[in-house]
Amino acid sequence: MNHEEGYRLGTPISGSGQTGTQNQLLQNLPGTHEVDMKIFSNTFALMHTHYDGIYPIFSPGDILLFNNWIVWANTWNSIPTNTPKIPLNNLTLTVVTSNGNYLLAFDGSFVDPLPAFTPEGFDDLNTKYKNNYLDKTHTNGNFNMEKVEKEFLSFISEKMNMTGLKLYRVKSDGNYEISLSDLDGTKCP
């Protein structure tokens, strides 16, 4: 594909007659190759693809989206009349690429918004991510995913540190939590 595709998963909306997990195909933002990842109070998972030629793992925009989602959900939960409450540690963002699949989760600890970026500042952040981190991970477009994972985690630690963020490598036999101190990963029970 030459564009992203995505899905939103949610719980049934109370009083709607819905049952089971709600699965919705996401549309692309008009005039772009990016998915419009709208989030609602019943959303618990967002999944999207990255096509070849862009990031083989999460982008800075994905991290910002996930952080904004956690902050928004925490604010939603703080309003007594808002229901249902959103379990922060159940929210996930997944990316599927031809090089591997990854999932972001949040451990439910301290909620802290990332800094507000100006458009220029965010463009600079993306350029640094690409030039100073990801360019080290491939030869002629062939990515060494162990290096990608390490550089991604280094970038997050240095430039977009989000307390409680967890990265998982999604494999056919299960999910493996990976970190800078454990790049092999620990299989989730």
Rank of each mutant, 00 (worst) to 15 (best):
L65K: 15
M37L: 13
E149M: 04
P84Y: 01
P56I: 09
K171L: 14
T186Q: 07
I13P: 01
F155M: 11
P56H: 11
C188A: 13
E177W: 06
N42K: 05
T43G: 04
L88R: 04
L93S: 01
E151C: 06
I70F: 03
R169D: 09
P60T: 06
N142C: 11
E34Q: 15
Y55K: 04
V96M: 07
P113M: 07
F117D: 03
Q18T: 08
W69H: 07
N42Y: 08
G185P: 01
L9A: 06
G141I: 04
E34F: 09
N67C: 07
E158S: 15
I57V: 10
N126H: 08
S172D: 15
K171F: 06
P84M: 07
K147H: 14
L103S: 12
L25M: 11
T49C: 09
D36R: 12
G164D: 11
R169C: 08
Y51E: 01
K85Y: 12
G53Y: 11
N144D: 15
N90E: 04
G10S: 07
S181I: 11
G6V: 12
A73W: 02
K187H: 07
I70S: 02
S154V: 06
N68S: 15
N126W: 01
L103W: 01
L46F: 09
N74A: 13
M1Q: 02
M145I: 11
E5F: 07
T127P: 00
S16G: 13
N132S: 12
S181K: 08
S41A: 10
L93K: 08
S181Q: 08
G6R: 04
G108I: 08
P80W: 00
E151P: 01
F66Q: 06
Q27C: 11
G185V: 04
N161F: 15
M162S: 01
P12L: 01
Y176L: 05
P84I: 10
D124A: 12
V111C: 08
Y102T: 05
N2G: 13
T75N: 04
D184Q: 05
P189F: 04
W72E: 06
N74G: 09
V71C: 14
Y168E: 03
W72L: 08
K136T: 09
M37Q: 10
G31M: 13
T81S: 13
R8D: 02
L29Y: 07
Y176G: 10
V95N: 02
N28E: 07
Y7D: 06
F143S: 10
Y51N: 05
I79C: 00
I70R: 03
F106E: 02
S179V: 00
N131I: 09
M37G: 00
L46N: 01
Y133R: 03
D173N: 12
G53Q: 06
M145E: 04
G6Y: 03
K150N: 13
V71K: 05
E151Y: 09
T83H: 10
K150L: 13
G20P: 02
D52M: 10
I70K: 05
V35M: 02
S14K: 15
L65P: 02
D173I: 14
F110G: 10
T83G: 00
S109F: 15
D123A: 10
